[in-house]
Amino acid sequence: MSTDTQMDIYEVLKYLPHRFPFLLVDRVLSCEPGKDIVAVKNVTINEPFFGGHFPHHPVMPGVLTIEAMAQAAIILAFKTRDSRPDDKSAYYFVGIDGARFKKPVTAGDQLILKASFIRNMRGLWKFSTAAEVDGQTVAEAELMCTVREL
Rank of each mutant, 00 (worst) to 15 (best):
136 Q>R: 14
33 P>M: 09
40 V>G: 05
48 P>Q: 05
9 I>G: 02
29 L>M: 12
6 Q>L: 09
141 A>T: 10
76 L>E: 08
104 P>L: 06
25 V>W: 03
102 K>P: 02
120 N>M: 12
131 A>G: 14
91 Y>I: 11
56 H>I: 12
69 M>E: 06
97 D>S: 12
92 Y>E: 00
41 K>G: 10
139 A>G: 11
13 L>P: 01
147 V>L: 15
56 H>N: 14
147 V>E: 14
16 L>Y: 06
33 P>C: 10
69 M>L: 03
138 V>R: 07
76 L>N: 09
16 L>M: 04
134 D>M: 10
21 P>L: 09
8 D>E: 10
88 K>F: 04
121 M>N: 12
49 F>L: 12
42 N>S: 12
138 V>T: 10
95 G>C: 08
82 D>S: 14
132 E>A: 11
75 I>D: 02
114 K>C: 11
61 P>C: 05
92 Y>I: 12
100 R>Y: 04
31 C>W: 00
130 A>N: 09
110 Q>Y: 00
116 S>V: 12
85 P>R: 07
111 L>N: 08
136 Q>I: 10
43 V>I: 15
128 S>M: 10
20 F>E: 13
38 V>F: 05
79 K>V: 04
64 L>W: 05
137 T>W: 00
68 A>I: 06
140 E>S: 15
117 F>E: 11
143 L>Q: 04
102 K>H: 11
63 V>F: 01
96 I>T: 14
77 A>F: 05
127 F>I: 09
10 Y>E: 13
10 Y>L: 13
5 T>R: 13
25 V>T: 04
145 C>K: 00
27 R>N: 10
125 W>N: 01
80 T>H: 09
83 S>H: 01
15 Y>H: 15
120 N>C: 14
82 D>K: 13
99 A>T: 03
134 D>Y: 01
12 V>F: 09
140 E>T: 15
89 S>D: 03
144 M>A: 15
117 F>H: 14
55 P>H: 04
48 P>M: 02
122 R>Q: 12
129 T>R: 03
3 T>Y: 09
105 V>I: 10
71 Q>L: 06
24 L>V: 00
26 D>C: 01
110 Q>E: 15
76 L>W: 07
66 I>H: 03
14 K>A: 12
